[in-house]
């Protein structure tokens, strides 16, 4: 599906998403997060488990309603599913989940499931076997059921199925973490190549920074429901601004054979139902100042009082 494009393909603006469970405090899993993905661009969304990455992705797919803020896909606002009709803004969005079991029907041959996507996209030229080949699987596998694949192969099938629908925005939520190790970088690269080749945008969610570094043009770092830093991947890597981003990068162990344990980030991941005041990172921040405890740094691209943009300086 093609869409009229005005501005970015995906805009998430000040999004708030809440989980409500009876008898429990409201969990504000996404607490005012903003991010953008352009057509043909790969954005890596990283952050610790529980910081709200999946909740954000589900909201973008219309699987979860927003409490406030906006999500625009191709300029059209996304409204949650559950209504009778699929939101037209969502026809070009496909998601690949961490656990391919949750997106593949166990009782249907994978070829038939891929054919559904091709049909939805009105594609009569490609066959399911062609798509399997594109993700590096033998053509004959189209006749198999999901359980007849290894974990890594199943994830490739899920990717093939998502691509069959010709999405303009592909979202991968930890799409490689169930893969056998040696296949992770390979499949991540594959997703990048296939998305970019077709002019689609890719929002690639992962906790694995080394893979994100390989494939993302830009990265967005999320902490406790907020995007705290965004920037071109190489720049963020070379010069991380937010103390949390610095902590993340310092935690990556280096394969130099030296036996150095990676730096640990002190303190616990806070409860999103009861976030700290001011800057949400302040209880764990080595550079915390007085202002951090009181006022939230509500600006970008680095949401930290050490990086407050100067209003007078030209951008």
């Amino acid at each position: 599906m093609t869409m009229p494009l005005t501005g970015p393909l995906l805009s998430v603006e000040d999004l708030v998403v809440e989980h409500r469970t009876p008898g429990r405090p409201v969990v504000r899993a996404v607490a005012g997060a903003s991010l953008h993905v352009a057509a043909g661009e790969v954005v890596g969304l990283v952050g610790e488990s529980g910081c709200g990455k999946s909740t954000l992705a589900r909201a973008v797919c219309g699987l979860h309603g927003a409490a406030s803020g906006r999500i625009l896909v191709g300029g059209h606002p996304v409204t949650p599913l559950g209504l009778r009709r699929r939101d037209p803004a969502l026809t070009g969005v496909q998601m690949v989940f961490q656990d391919p079991y949750s997106s593949l029907n166990p009782r249907r041959r994978v070829g038939a499931q891929i054919a559904d996507g091709l049909r939805a996209a009105g594609d009569t030229a490609a066959s399911p076997a062609d798509l399997l080949e594109r993700v590096g699987l033998p053509r004959a596998f189209a006749g198999r059921y999901p359980h007849e694949f290894s974990g890594g192969q199943r994830q490739r099938v899920a990717i093939a199925r998502a691509l069959a629908a010709r999405p303009s925005l592909l979202i991968g939520d930890e799409p490689i973490s169930a893969l056998d190790a040696s296949a992770q970088a390979q499949v991540a690269r594959l997703m990048r190549d296939l998305a970019v080749e077709s002019g689609a945008g890719l929002l690639f969610i992962s906790h694995d920074l080394s893979v994100v570094r390989l494939i993302a043009d830009r990265i967005a770092v999320m902490y406790l429901g907020k995007v705290v830093e965004t920037g071109p991947t190489a720049e963020v890597w070379a010069d991380p601004g937010h103390p949390y981003t610095r902590a993340l990068l310092a935690a990556i162990p280096s394969p130099d054979g030296a036996g150095v344990l990676p730096a640990e980030l002190p303190g616990d991941v806070p409860d999103p139902a009861d976030p700290p005041s001011g800057c949400r990172f302040h209880p764990r921040c080595p550079l915390v100042m007085d202002v951090c405890r009181e006022k939230e740094p509500g600006f970008g691209p680095v949401a930290c009082w050490l990086h407050e943009p100067e209003p007078s300086s030209p951008s």
Binding site: G47, E48, S49, S177, A178, A181, H207, D208, L209, A247, L248, A251, I252, P253, L261, P262, A263, E264, L265
Partner: peptide, 16 residues
Amino acid sequence: EPTTALDVTVQAGILR
């Protein structure tokens, strides 16, 4: 592969 599915910050803690 005990830390393959974990964050690097958590992984650092588990490795320690």
